[in-house]
Design a protein around this nucleic acid. Structure first.
Length: 598
RNA sequence: GGCCCGGUAGCGUAGUGGUUUAACGCGCGGCCCUGUCAAGGCCGAGAUCACGGGUUCAAAUCCCGUCCGGGUCGCCA
């Protein structure tokens, strides 16, 4: 090693030792005589002092130092003089008196400041990712990521799981998300697909008798990106044999509780995790991934709406829709402009409009409420008693603002759930240091698709239905519940899993019900169905998304891009490598591919 | 694919039709400076205002289009 110790490791117990340090010039403070350098390496920062009286040669070398130069410094560790210690630095009690200095490599002036935590355009950061990753915040994020993944591996290893790698080049199965395809050189016109998840592979491992499998698995989906979605993301994929729901959920609860408590001292969590039913969660929050750090629960107002004179409400209800709303405490005094803002917010989330009712006055009782204290977009279509009914259902008090959306259930729920999150933020109810986990269970097995006029799996078709729901497959498939569970946290879906079908007959019934022909079933799922005939054990699993979890865990992440070393932009571009990019005609020819101009 | 926001020295921003020679802070370069840690002081350089077209006597500023980034709906079993 060129160095004897890391910069960030130096403490008062090293005082008197002569050390050789190597790293990057983080900051330089030149007093003409004395020069102070904050020297940075992967372990942290330490202050180096160049004194022209102690070592003129070293001082002369340091005069030329500039930001991000790579330098080597030899010197003695000393306690800082009284009054000059820096309590903000872990190494702030000591400093190094340089006796020798050497430039190992120079650096151009970086395109943005690495030593300060300022706002820098994200595209610029992506284009210079190797510099962006030098910043303390990104460095902390990647270290945190390593610790979390290591904890997961150790935790599962302790419990008898083994990590098994599965192929990245596998086969396209057209259901679900769009596949990333890789052309075959050897078989013209044939393609591998990158796995959206190792779902079938891990089930085959259960058939193979491994009983407890896990993998830190990369998963690929060619769909549009978001702050919480990248074309490739990493899951802790796991699967167990001879288990039921409770085995999986308690394992995951213990894992996540441990990680938060032992790896993330900056986070608090609520124990035990809540277990919520899908229907209940949809009714109360309008989404299957509610932020449970705050209340603001939705109330169904459809019945009240029917009794009013409001055309808007009647139209929605007559069209088979619903009316729901919630109360924003203390927002009764919102200005016209603020209300308009919320309306626009709801509209951009798909709602036709937003109905607001603000209640003036004070106290907690609605008894003294008069129509004069009610301000609403639909005030003239409401009686005082109806306003009170709405207030009671939404638990609104005088001084509150009730927000109501009417329309098809899906639209109203989407808009309201996002409005609820928005108000949670505005009212500062979303404590970023708090993580509230919950398991959502009892999902429907199927969802009706208006687009294809067919039943589709709510999650995936390997999910087993509740055992006593099989008869419903013929009579009322929409009522079938799945042995499926999600882990949600702070409004994010963190994991998804299920107990699987392990009986070929039953698995095939589901596939036939979904409209697959015997040929399609054989071609797409033949390998799995075949395996189910050779002693497949009951099994189930789950797959927590590691990027999303880290995003919630980190104090320095604005999106999952901040916890991924080299992420893509919203247009799925790698701004550093400029991928994707054209390839040579020779490469295309070998792959039997011709590019067609559109 | 739809909608919304943004693009002005290396970085972050201000300027939204004419006293702008495009301003400020940081950074950068030079000089001064022996206890700083957002070091300080003085001086200086640095911008085809994303790109293309249009309106106007006059455009960073208004209009249209394109590209790029972010958010969002659709999409994401």
């Amino acid at each position: 090693m060129l160095k004897t110790i890391a910069c960030g490791e130096l403490r008062s117990n090293h005082v008197g030792k002569t050390v050789t340090l190597a790293g990057w010039v983080h900051k330089r403070r030149d007093h003409g005589g004395l020069i102070f350098i904050d020297l940075r390496d992967s372990q942290g920062l330490v202050q180096v002092v160049f004194n022209p009286e102690r070592s003129p040669a070293a001082h002369q070398v340091a005069e030329n130092f500039r930001s991000e130069w790579v330098v080597l410094v030899e010197g003695e560790v000393a306690l800082r003089p009284v009054g000059t210690q820096n309590p903000h630095m872990p190494t702030g009690e000591v400093e190094v008196y340089a006796s020798r200095a050497e430039v190992l490599n120079q650096s151009k002036t970086p395109p943005f400041d690495i030593s300060e935590d300022g706002q820098v355009d994200e595209l610029l950061r992506m284009q210079w990712r190797y510099l962006d990753l030098r910043t303390a915040r990104m460095h902390d994020n990647l270290v945190l990521r390593h610790r979390v993944v290591k904890y997961m591996r150790d935790f599962l290893d302790d419990r008898g799981f083994i990590e098994i790698e599965t192929p990245i080049l596998i086969k396209s199965t057209p259901e679900g998300a769009r596949d990333y395809l890789v052309p075959s050189r050897i078989y013209p016109g044939s393609f591998y697909a990158l796995p959206q998840s190792p779902q079938q592979l891990k089930q085959l491992l259960m058939v193979a008798g491994y009983e407890r499998y896990f993998q830190i698995a990369r998963c690929f989906r060619d769909e549009d990106l978001r702050g919480d979605r990248q074309p490739e993301h990493t899951q802790l994929d796991l699967e167990m044999s001879f288990v039921n729901e409770e085995d999986i959920l308690s394992l995951i609860e213990e894992l996540f509780t441990d990680i938060v408590e032992k790896v993330a001292s900056n986070r608090k969590l609520v124990k035990p995790f809540a277990r919520l039913r899908y229907d209940d969660v949809m009714a109360r929050y309008g989404t299957d991934k509610p932020d449970l750090r705050f209340g603001l629960e939705l109330a169904d107002l459809t019945e009240v709406a029917k009794a009013t004179e409001s055309h808007v409400l009647h139209q929605a209800v007559d069209g088979g829709g619903i009316v729901k709303g919630f109360a924003a405490p203390g927002c009764g005094g919102y200005s016209r402009r603020q209300v308009d803002e919320l309306t626009a917010f709801a509209q951009t989330r798909g709602a036709r409009g937003l109905i607001t009712i603000s209640l003036a006055g004070e106290g907690t009782s609605l008894d003294g409420l008069t129509m004069e204290q009610v301000r609403s977009t639909i005030a003239r279509f409401l009686t005082l008693e109806q306003v009170k009914q709405i207030a009671r259902r939404t638990k609104a008090k005088p001084g509150d603002l009730i927000l109501i959306v009417a329309g098809p259930a899906k639209v109203a729920n989407t808009a309201l759930s996002q409005l609820r999150n928005e108000m949670g933020q505005r009212l500062k109810l979303t404590d970023p240091t708090l993580m509230v986990f919950a398991f959502v269970t009892d999902f429907p097995l199927f969802a009706w698709s208006e687009e294809t006029k067919a039943w589709e799996p709510e999650h995936h078709l390997f999910t087993a239905p509740a055992e006593d729901h099989w008869p419903l497959l013929e009579t009322d498939p929409g009522k079938m519940r799945a042995r499926h569970y999600d882990l949600v946290c702070n409004g994010m879906e963190l994991a998804s899993g299920s107990i699987r079908n392990y009986n070929r007959e039953k698995q095939e019934r589901i596939m036939r019900f979904l409209g697959y022909t015997p040929e399609q079933i054989d071609e797409r799922f033949g390998q799995l169905l075949g395996a189910l005939e050779y002693g497949a054990p009951p099994h189930g699993g789950i797959a927590p998304g590691i990027d999303r979890f880290l995003y919630l865990l980190s104090d320095h992440a604005d999106s999952i891009r901040d916890v991924i070393a080299f992420p893509k932009t919203q247009n799925a571009v790698d701004a550093l490598f400029h991928a994707p990019a054209p390839v040579t005609p020779e490469q295309l020819k070998e792959l039997h591919i011709r590019v067609v101009e559109e």
